[in-house]
């Protein structure tokens, strides 16, 4: 029993939490921004896959790591534009369009990857982001290793969560996004164009999703595999609900999910065969469902989520 608790005292656990959480933070923030403006974006899984592929491909062909992140963001923005064009001015079903984008983007990544990289059991590698030491902070015992030995995108993800929280709650633009998600007609009466704003929110949100995917190939690993996103996008969609559509809670939710995951990887070594390993793999998802039950009761869904805005409609 003590050993199960000792795990929490290891710096490695907390470092793993931040690593595992990073793609989820990007993805959840992206999905959250889309949904706050009233558009559900189920294209996330495919957009993350494409971001992972194109980001890696950029670096493989000689680009810098940050160029990889930028290209991934740009590709995400393009898929976002596609999703927005279908769902916002045309008002098509957001579920169907989103799933369509996921199918399209993941298949297209596979296609591009297969055409441009020779088949091999050990695909080519790039040199990924390295952990950066923050002067002063990284030398603190325990905390330094636990929290300040990450790669740059991880710090960026946390920074973005803070920026998104402030922007949504405290800026005129954030207010406009929120109104459009609650009552687009009221927004229009205020002189805000809900169509343009929604398109903008989906484009920005989708760009963040793609960066989350790019983290997998540019920092968490150094090669691309066509199926490597492994449902992380769907986890992000659930985390948005967990977060009650609030960026700060989204950060918390992603960290909590990552904590369960990092913990179960270690717990299995302590407990051994007493419990089947499948149970450990379930832990993060089970805990997320439990947390969801508690949090979702109080969650306030954006009132106009999934409702297309048609000008002049009553």
């Amino acid at each position: 029993m003590m050993e199960a608790l000792d795990i929490f005292a290891s710096a490695g656990l907390w470092a793993a939490v931040l690593r595992i959480a990073t793609p989820l933070i990007f993805g959840t923030l992206g999905a959250l921004i889309c949904e706050r403006s009233g558009v559900l974006n189920l294209g996330i899984e495919g957009i993350m896959t494409f971001g992972a592929m194109i980001g890696w491909m950029t670096v493989y062909h000689g680009g810098g790591l940050w160029a990889g992140i930028a290209v991934a963001a740009l590709s995400g923005a393009m898929f976002g534009l596609l999703h927005a064009a279908m769902t916002v001015p045309l008002g098509l079903s957001q579920h169907v369009t989103g799933l369509g984008i996921t199918l399209f983007a993941s298949s297209l990544s596979y296609y591009i990857f297969r055409l441009s990289i020779p088949v091999s059991g050990s695909p080519p590698t790039i040199v990924p982001f390295q952990p950066i030491a923050i002067p002063g902070l990284s030398d603190i015992p325990f905390l330094g290793e636990a929290l300040f030995s990450q790669t740059a995108p991880t710090y960026l993800a946390i920074l973005l969560a803070v920026v998104a929280a402030i922007a949504l709650a405290r800026t005129p633009l954030g207010l406009a996004v929120r109104i459009v998600g609650e009552n687009p007609h009221a927004a229009e009466a205020q002189g805000i164009d809900p169509i343009r704003l929604r398109i903008g929110a989906v484009v920005v949100g989708s760009a963040l999703m793609a960066v989350g995917g790019a983290f997998l190939t540019l920092s968490a690993f150094n090669s691309f595999f066509p199926t490597m996103v492994q449902g992380r996008g769907w986890v992000c969609i659930a985390l948005v609900v967990f977060a009650s559509w609030k960026p700060a809670r989204a950060l918390l939710g992603a960290l909590l999910f990552a904590l369960f995951d990092a913990y179960q990887l270690r717990l299995s070594h302590v407990v051994g065969k007493a419990i089947p390993y499948q149970l450990f793999l379930m832990i993060p998802y089970l805990m997320s469902i439990l947390a969801l039950l508690v949090m979702a009761r109080r969650a306030r869904v954006p009132q106009a989520l999934m409702q297309p805005f048609r000008r002049g409609e009553r």
Binding site: L13, L216, A220, F221, M228, A262
Partner: peptide, 23 residues
């Protein structure tokens, strides 16, 4: 031993390996 429950998740295999090194 660590099982990651999937054949295709290198970042997760890496995390599993790091957990074992921690142990």
């Amino acid at each position: 031993v660590g099982f990651i429950g999937t054949f295709f998740d290198p970042p997760k295999a890496r995390e599993s390996g790091l957990a074992q090194i921690d142990a």
